[in-house]
Design a protein around this nucleic acid. Sequence first.
DNA 1: ACGATCACG
DNA 2: GACGTACGTGATCGTA
Length: 959
Amino acid sequence: MADTPEPTKQHLYLVDGSSYIFRAYHRLPPLTDPEGTPVGAVYGYTTMLWKLAADLDEADGPTHLAVILDAGSISFRNDIYEHYKANRPDPPEDLVPQFPLIRDATRAFSLPCIEEAGLEADDLIASYAREAQRMGWNVTIVSSDKDLMQLVGEADGPDGPARIDMLDTMKNQRIYLPEVAEKFGVTPDLVGDVLALMGDSVDNVPGIFGIGPKTASKLIAEYGSLTAALDSAPAMKPSKLKERLIEGRADAELSKVLVTLKEDCDLPQPIAEMKLGPVPPEPLAAFLEKHGFTSLLKRLGAGNGSPARKTDLNPPKADKAGDNGTGDGSANRQPPPEMPHVDHTAYETVQTIERLEHWIARARAARLVAVDTETTSLDAMRADLVGVSLALGPNDACYIPLAHGGDDMFAQKPEQVDKAAALAALKPLLEDDSVLKVFQNGKYDCNVLAREGMAVAPIDDTMVISFALDAGRGEEGMGGSGIGGHGMDELSQRHLGHTPIAFKDVCGTGKKAISFGEVPLDRATRYAAEDADITLRLYQTLKPRLAEEGGTRIYERVDRPLIPVVATMEREGIRVNRARLARLSEEFAVEIRRLEGQIHELAGQEFTVGSPKQLGEILFDKLGYKGGKKGKSGQYSTDVSVLERLATEGAPMARKVLEWRQLAKLKSTYTDALQAAINPATGRVHTSYSLVGAQTGRLSSTDPNLQNIPVRTPIGRQIREAFVPEDGNVLLAADYSQIELRLAAHMANVDTLKQAFANGEDIHARTAREMFGEVTRDTRARAKTINFAILYGISRWGLAGRLEVTSDEAQDMIDTYFQRFPGIQRYIHETLETVRAKGYSETLFGRKTWFPRINSKNQAERQGSERAAINAPIQGTSADIIKRAMARMLPALAEAGLDDVRMLLQVHDELVFELPEARVEAATPIIRRVMAEAALPAVELTVPLGVDIGTGASWDAAH
DNA sequence: ACGATCACG
DNA sequence: GACGTACGTGATCGTA
């Protein structure tokens, strides 16, 4: 900054090389260099160094810089505690050869690289940081290791305060006191105490068992230190926590020693030698050349100089040498062309109709515009439109507020274009056939805009593109959100190296959350325009990959056409009979209370029946039933299989609990929740389908989930009776019969099974005949189990458990199956070979599912991936087929003049329609044909696809 | 926030 | 030598 006092303060950057490389490895695609050496992590590391070196001259950039590495896996901490870091898995195979390359890369930049046997990088960093601080320098630690957060803060130096902060280059985030407080709830000097209580499973620091981050922060904040907390334990009121603190004291004290950084190491190299200057280009060029980092090489050449001279590297525009080249998700690809950094100040707030017309005209001319809507709710059927943002190029984006300032008619509202006028102006653009609208999760925006009277088309969707390219590649533990690693924040992080403004930072969370319409326009613009900006950047990054990586077929022919179809289904919704649900709720409540009384009586005490923990203790400890098995959580298992067994062994309580559970489930999950889900405006229930929720390509359904409405028991089926058509209409349910087994027969080319399907046989009976020689209730049921086991990737023990036979007998059955149905074994083998080699499986229509853990050294993990990989092509092909049917269905019906047939629901192999009773006869053959022929012409199956159709006055009756 | 449980294909 | 055993989902509850 111009007003920075001279001379500039010295600023030491300490790069935690070891931790960076691990994170870069997991975040970046598996690039290889021309010789086939894996270099993805090294590439990430190199771009980061580049950027840091280029920041010399920046206001807060480095004047001095060093990379600190771990010398080995053993440190002085192992003398204190032999298990320290003992549960670290070996690094992945393709990361190992990259470790030495880190030193090469650092040397190529002519930067000092420091390591010391017996010391961890953290200790060296701590010692250097403190020394620099004593000299009055500022220090930035480039790492996200939480242990290092202990160092953050200011100390008095010889000429004013000297500050230590951290920089997380993967998240592009500075870490200072507020960030530490947010993570640990305490000041940095107490971070070690928190860590000592909570432990660290990655480093195998024990902590105190049963105390996690939340409890640890609370205790330390409350008592002021670890010692004080431990000392206060005996005086606490009796509780689990008190016991744990007393029993775990030694563990905590040991942990404290382990997490405390050694700040007085001898410094292997003087700090003065870390001065950052122009980087000599020759060694760097040689390194970049050797590993095929051509885009960096080009940048080096074009800049005609070193990365340490920022001005040499960059075009005149505000284009810093970028952290946006941190990977693009595919092997052996060039990083995308450079994009300028996201610049929030470049965005325009559109507040007049003239400026709006200007943007619309530019969008028309560009023929491509990224669009994002801001609303009051995540539920597209209840959301009110608050504003729209548009992006035409990087940093070339605007936000058009439409309803900021709340509902209060008299409140002072910010200047904004009249909503009706703005929408009228936008409508022709959004409906223009010749202008492509790009969204991130466009189904949502299209539904919101549809409710404003707009049929937005054509559209592209970066989330759906990402799914076509990278299903299964997302981070672990992303399930549940329904977007499986394809959300905007993850994509931006992964492909652009940029962390967008978080919604919660704009609107807050919990009770203090405000609606987007309450957000001041400047902040709203930064957030909203950034979303459109990023969507456009993602599109430019991801779209080219479709063609390069064979994703076009699945995206253009299956997933993309489905977006408006599913959007329409969501808007249709389905009618439910509220009174009927309410009556069921009441009946269930009565029965639940009755059962609860009986259960308490049998237990001889009151307890929470819904608590598996308490129930287990009652059954196995108090009542003394045998065979209680505790899982890894130390709890008895009380699931159906356990309770069924107890019931047959004569435990009356078990049967009662099973009934209680069934009713409690039906009431809370269905009869109560469905009533609450009825949309007051439409009187119907509108689920939300995720197009990217299931890695195999299936849809998933949330809010509410209408894909798991009970059907298997008579009592549960009563809930289906509450799903009804409008007066004069009927519901029609059409489902594929045994589609996955049929596909398995085709894909594994099993003649016996194919013939059985061609002849319309009962496939489980046929299997029973082949395997056991005769068809009885029992053999058919066993055959059915075995058929499913095959689809899911069989193991002798798994089958043995289900059939209640020994694992030897199960093995015999598996052998027999493979013998009677040759082809299955070969299919399994070949599928696994391909997945191991390529990393992904493919459906008949070319949908990829990635299995990053298929070659894991962890056997359980690997075998899990293997089973999933056997199933994915079958489940995924089935999903492709019904999706193709859905995309064709309404046009086919309309062509026959049946435009009053509404498609409402999809349940994996079933479609549910609502139509006038008089249309059933005409619609049935069309629906059957579209579904049965959905694979054609792309794939000619060697088995017929059977479709069962029924109609009725409720979903239950339609089956 | 997470595990246990259970609803579906 | 031990591990832990069927694929894919989402909602609810109790516990922490």
